[in-house]
Amino acid sequence: MEHTDFFEIGGKRLTSRLFTGTGKYGSDSLISSVCESSGSQVITVALRRVDLDKSADNVMRHIPAHMTLLPNTSGARTAGEAVRIARLARAMGCGNWIKIEVISDNRYLLPDGYETVRATEILAKEGFVVLPYMNPDLYVARALADAGAAAIMPLGAPIGTNRGLKTEEMIRILIEEMDLPIIVDAGIGTPSQACQAMEMGAAACLVNTAIATASDPVLMGRAFGRAVAAGREAWLAGPGAVATLAQASSPLTGFLDDPGAAS
């Protein structure tokens, strides 16, 4: 079947709406197989100081060439640090996408909305395709849109918890109110949860931990790819009618049939 539903973002035309990550794998050598099995076309990486003591395997070796790289600003505690990391990431020559992640609370790892808005504003002006990771708050989402974000990435649950769409109602509001694509990031633990997010109208899901820490990441990657595609199709198809409401004994529109009451 010819693919007709494209996700256009940052000048790219994606057929897969599953974004994956490269963190937490038992072995980075699994990454290329997961890219293949999941069908994902966007993958996140982080930027770190080189370890001067041991020459580590470079993660880039395992990322297939066709993948769009989405560097994150993990480690940034302020807007200034996020901007610095973003500029360094772009200097790597792998495109201009950036996932802004500003976290200064190491206990809950929740993103700082104010700093995220500030970083988004600066980086969008510098021509980055900015995808900010955020707590699903409508006011922050609007500020991010005004600041020039290309999409909004609300968390479903705190990073790495695999607890599912704990913020479902707030994400639903973002989907309803925002014109920008909503990409659910963080917290999705199972394919059914990713599917649910897509059925709600999310534009995409970013799943890292749940795939990387599965017993069989390649199989789990495929399951997520299919779940995201299924949820998307369900959204496009539109839900069917829920059981017709029972006819009450006194209908609300009965007066319309009563010639005495109608004019």
């Binding site: 990550g21 996140t44 930027l47 100081r49 080189v50 990387a212």
Partner: peptide, 10 residues
């Protein structure tokens, strides 16, 4: 001097 490279991350 700071030298950085991409590493695994979500």
């Amino acid at each position: 001097l700071e030298l950085l490279s991409f590493v695994g991350g979500g």
